[in-house]
């Protein structure tokens, strides 16, 4: 565990807490893509099946359980408790366009052709593109609430920090996982446009809005 990895995890945790807090305080999930949240639940479920097969640390287990539980709780809030505020008309990205190709790729390009390994690979690939429905929703409505922008910034920072973590691990631990690194870079690149808008607008006190 190095400092980049820890900051990355904390950033990920912060993102989830911001999202939950936003929904709980405003009693609304307006502007949040339910599709992206379903994909994240699928990501955590398929990746953390090793909870049943191997124990790494209390930290590792706790975080995994929190990520899984919070993702299903988010879905419950969006599709049940605060259903009336869910903006389904603007959340029109088709999940199968991501899940099907990613599933195929996980079968073809993996470290080892074993069920758990293929599911892990699937989750890594899926996570890299799971934010697309959310970004699509922001671009469709042309704006995002400031709190939603903070959520997205924390979520994007998490994967950027993981890249620094991989660079560190490559040089100091001799560790390199090509699948995780490539997918992580793709994931981070998807946030670049958003990072630019966040820094030039949201940090200057303006609401994130896209040019018409």
């Amino acid at each position: 565990m190095n400092v980049f990895r820890l900051l990355g995890d904390m950033s990920h945790l912060l993102a989830i807490l911001i999202l939950l807090l936003k929904m709980w305080k405003t009693r609304s999930c307006a502007g949040i893509s339910g599709k992206t949240q379903i994909l994240f639940a699928l990501v955590f479920t398929t990746r953390y099946l090793d909870l049943f097969s191997s124990f790494i640390s209390i930290y590792n287990t706790t975080m995994k359980l929190f990520f899984i539980a919070s993702s299903y709780f988010t879905i419950f809030l969006m599709y049940s408790k605060f259903k009336a505020t869910y903006d389904s008309n603007h959340d029109s990205f088709r999940m199968e366009f991501l899940v099907v190709p990613v599933g195929g790729l996980a079968f073809l390009v993996n470290h080892e052709f074993l069920p758990l390994e293929i599911l892990w690979t699937f989750s890594i690939y899926l996570e890299s593109v799971a934010i697309l429905p959310q970004l699509f929703m922001v671009s469709k409505t042309g704006e995002a609430e400031t709190i939603t922008s903070h959520y997205l910034f924390a979520l994007g920072s998490y994967r950027l920090l993981y890249i620094f973590n991989w660079v560190y691990r490559y040089y100091f631990d001799g560790f390199f996982d090509l699948i995780a690194v490539v997918a992580g870079c793709v994931q981070t690149i998807l946030y670049c446009d958003f990072f630019y808008l966040y820094i030039t607008k949201v940090l200057k006190g303006k609401k994130l809005s896209l040019p018409a």
């Binding site: 995890d9 191997s54 790494i56 640390s57 590792n60 975080m63 470290h111 074993l114 390994e117 973590n165």
Partner: peptide
Amino acid sequence: DVELDDKDEL
């Protein structure tokens, strides 16, 4: 080579 049994990253 990648160690498959030790996925400590989240």
